[in-house]
Amino acid sequence: MFDLSSLTSKIFGRKNASKDVAKGRLKLVLIHDKANVNSDLLKIIKSEIMQVLMKYTDATNEDIDIHITSTESEDGEGFVPALTANIPIKNMKKPNEETA
């Protein structure tokens, strides 16, 4: 109905400020650079995780989302790259179920 924060951002013209877009894109690309993980390596990791998953679940390739993000480092000083995998479990395979 009435969203104060979106109103103020409209007034100050800061909604979707391009500097925020730039900052976000830069952070992401720097994480990739520092982790030195290219998309190719991610694909290999993804396919190997997939093989394990397919043994036990009905997961398909489209269900699995693997990407590099940043997470706060354990000493609390800055951020470190992290490999994040988001894998929804649809159906666990029953032990006697045939593999498709």
């Binding site: 894109r25 830069l26 992401l28 690309v29 990739h32 290219n38 998309s39 190719d40 694909k43």
Partner: peptide, 12 residues
């Protein structure tokens, strides 16, 4: 790649 917003699509 970054200037063209293609940075997430670099493979080779």
């Amino acid at each position: 790649d970054l200037v063209l917003r293609l940075e997430n699509r670099v493979v080779f």
